[in-house]
Design a protein around this nucleic acid. Structure first.
Lengths: 125, 125
DNA sequence: TTATAATATGAACAAATAAACATATGTTAA
DNA sequence: TTAACATATGTTTATTTGTTCATATTATAA
């Protein structure tokens, strides 16, 4: 029976079969990114995995907006928008700048637009 | 004060300001996809927003795998993997084919690989 | 048919989390 | 300084959701 550790595998199975199946499993393990990386990847996508945050992100697709404008145009509470923007900022998906009493938020990175667009393509097919 | 409905906006604000700010808000509303689309988009990303599912998806990046192999190489329970695969299949991110007692799963769509790669780029920067 | 292996699924439980509400902080103008 | 506005944040609550455990289904082999 094959064991699934990176260290190596036993040889208690029919040779012919093992040579292909074991190698397959091993190649999957070799290509698999480290758990921490995949965890971060999941955390990234999690940010896009809530409809409120998606709406907020999309509203900023090609312009910066202040909190009140976002809340107003998306019919969301100021508190909710502010909370979500903080989460998005912590995740480095948006950045902000203060101008007087207002704080303007915008997408932090071209990747954010790319990920949104890529997902949109899949949804709209 | 500007109202944030698609229908139109009032004209109770200083003209100069309104002409730019109101038009900005209106253009955001015009570009904003329908709520149902953004909801679907969030649902899509939600599938990638769990580290277990990410691990499972990534393990199938360039090969099909059966449930036991996935569970074994990722050190997950058979039940957990099966549950997640069902969710991924419902979301059309993976497909399956039966071969004897085993069921082989694979990524359903090139978009899935693209989305994973795009996210990975962002994480690895 | 019976036993066994592989997968699927229903139910219960625990952890994560988004929204609401109240309140605090920060900024400008009077 | 005080008032008013914009934003931030702590707490509570309700909902969602991933995992586990037990069991059911499906397929092969004896």
């Amino acid at each position: 029976m094959l064991n699934y550790n990176r260290k190596g595998a036993n040889v208690t199975v029919e040779k012919e079969y093992l040579e292909t199946h074991d190698e397959l499993i091993q190649s999957v393990l070799d290509r698999q990114p480290a758990d921490e990386v995949l965890y971060d990847l999941a955390e990234l996508f999690k940010m896009f995995g809530d409809s409120t945050r998606i709406k907020i992100l999309y509203s900023m697709f090609d312009t910066e907006l202040c909190v009140n404008d976002i809340a107003g145009l998306l019919h969301l509470s100021q508190s909710s928008v502010s909370h979500q923007l903080r989460i998005l900022k912590t995740s480095k998906l948006v950045k902000s700048r203060r101008e007087g009493k207002s704080v303007f938020y915008s997408l932090d990175d071209e990747h954010v637009r790319l990920i949104l667009s890529m997902g949109m393509e899949h949804v709209e097919e």
